[in-house]
C-alpha cells in the first residue's frame, strides 16, 4: 500500500512539475509578447474631414465649413487646420483655393472657407479638401438650372387651379411652400417636395393647386365659408421655393445612421419666392 501511494505521489509530482514548467514558460512568453499596450481610439482611415456648406446661386459669398474629424474639441487642437480647400468648376475648367475664416465657439475654433464669386447654374463643381500628407476628401455637386418660374393662369379667382412650374430642370428637387405674405413672419403652409417623375424626358416640375384649398390648409380651423380673398391682404398668394441641385436634397435628408454621409453635406441651391396675383374681387366659385 505504501509503495503504491509513493508511486502515485511521484507520478503526480512529475505531472505537476511538467504542467508548472509549461505554465511558467507560457507566462514568460505571453508577458514578453504582449508588451504592446497601445490603443488607437480613432479610426483615422475613414473619418478624415467633415464638409458642411452649399453654393447659393443667388449669393456672391459662399461659406463651406471644413472640420478635421480626428481633432478633439479643444482650442489648441483646432487653432489651425491642416487642409487646403479648392473649389473646381469642372464645367468651365477653373478652380479657386479658398481662404479660411476662423470663428470660435465654446473655446473651439471652426474653419469656414469662403468662395467669393458667382456660381453658375447647371455647372458641375468639385470641392477638394487635401491634407498635407496628400489625403483628400472630395465632394461633387451640380448646381440647379435656375429657370424662370411659371404660374398660370394669373388673376383668377381663388377657386381656379393654378399651375406652378419650373422648366428646364437637370434633375434635383424643389421644395415649395405656399403662404399668405412674402415675409417669414407671414403664415406659410407645409412644404411640398417635388421631384421629376421617373420619365425625366419631360424636364419639368409642376405643382397645381387651388388657392382656396391652400388658404384653408394654411389657416386650419378658419371658417371654410370665408373666402380666401378675405385672408389675402395683398391679393397675392405666394410660392416660396428652394431649388436643390441634383442629389443635394437627398444628401441632407439622408439616413441618420449613415455616418459618412452625415458628415458630407455639400451641394448647391437657390431660394426664391413668387407672388401669384389673384382676382380677389371675384369671390364666387365658377358655378355660383
Amino acid at each position: 500500500m505504501f509503495r503504491i501511494i509513493t508511486f502515485r505521489v511521484h507520478a503526480i509530482m512529475k505531472i505537476n512539475l511538467i504542467v508548472l514548467l509549461i505554465f511558467c514558460v507560457g507566462i514568460v512568453a505571453v508577458t514578453i509578447t504582449s508588451c504592446d499596450n497601445t490603443l488607437e481610439p480613432l479610426d483615422k482611415d475613414t473619418g478624415i474631414f467633415a464638409i458642411y456648406g452649399f453654393l447659393d446661386l443667388k449669393e456672391q459669398n459662399h461659406y463651406i465649413r471644413v472640420r478635421d474629424l480626428n481633432v478633439p474639441f479643444t482650442r489648441e487642437a483646432t487653432e489651425t487646420i491642416d487642409a487646403t480647400v479648392t473649389l473646381h468648376n469642372l464645367t468651365r475648367g477653373t478652380s479657386a483655393i479658398l481662404e479660411s475664416e476662423r470663428r470660435v465657439h465654446q473655446d473651439v475654433y471652426q474653419h469656414n472657407f469662403l468662395f467669393s464669386d458667382s456660381v453658375f447654374p447647371d455647372h458641375e463643381y468639385r470641392l477638394v479638401v487635401e491634407r498635407s500628407d496628400g489625403v483628400t476628401v472630395e465632394a461633387n455637386t451640380r448646381t440647379p438650372t435656375m429657370p424662370e418660374p411659371m404660374a398660370e393662369p394669373l388673376n383668377q379667382n381663388c377657386f381656379v387651379p393654378v399651375a406652378f412650374s419650373l422648366e428646364p430642370m437637370n434633375g434635383g428637387t424643389v421644395v415649395i411652400r405656399l403662404g399668405l405674405g412674402p415675409t417669414s413672419s407671414d403664415r406659410w403652409g407645409t412644404r411640398h417636395i417635388l421631384t421629376l417623375d421617373d420619365d425625366q424626358s419631360l424636364d419639368k416640375i409642376e405643382f397645381t393647386f387651388i388657392p382656396q384649398d391652400q388658404v384653408i390648409s394654411i389657416l386650419p380651423g378658419s371658417d371654410p365659408d370665408r373666402r380666401c380673398a378675405q385672408h389675402l391682404r395683398t391679393s397675392n398668394i405666394y410660392v416660396s421655393y428652394i431649388h436643390y441641385g441634383p442629389g443635394f436634397f437627398e444628401r441632407i435628408e439622408n439616413d441618420p445612421f449613415d455616418i459618412f454621409a452625415s458628415t458630407q453635406r455639400f451641394g448647391a441651391l437657390y431660394y426664391d419666392t413668387l407672388a401669384i396675383p389673384l382676382d380677389t374681387s371675384r369671390v364666387c366659385p365658377p358655378d355660383c
Binding site: 458642411y52 474639441f73 451641394g267
Partner: peptide
C-alpha cells in the same frame, strides 16, 4: 468600437456655416 470622428454637425441649409456653430 473606434471613434469615427469629433464633429460639429450642421443641418445645412437650415443652419449656415457663418452663423450657426452646429451640434458637437
Amino acid at each position: 468600437t473606434q471613434i469615427f470622428g469629433f464633429d460639429y454637425s450642421l443641418r445645412v441649409p437650415v443652419e449656415e456655416p457663418q452663423t450657426d456653430p452646429g451640434t458637437a
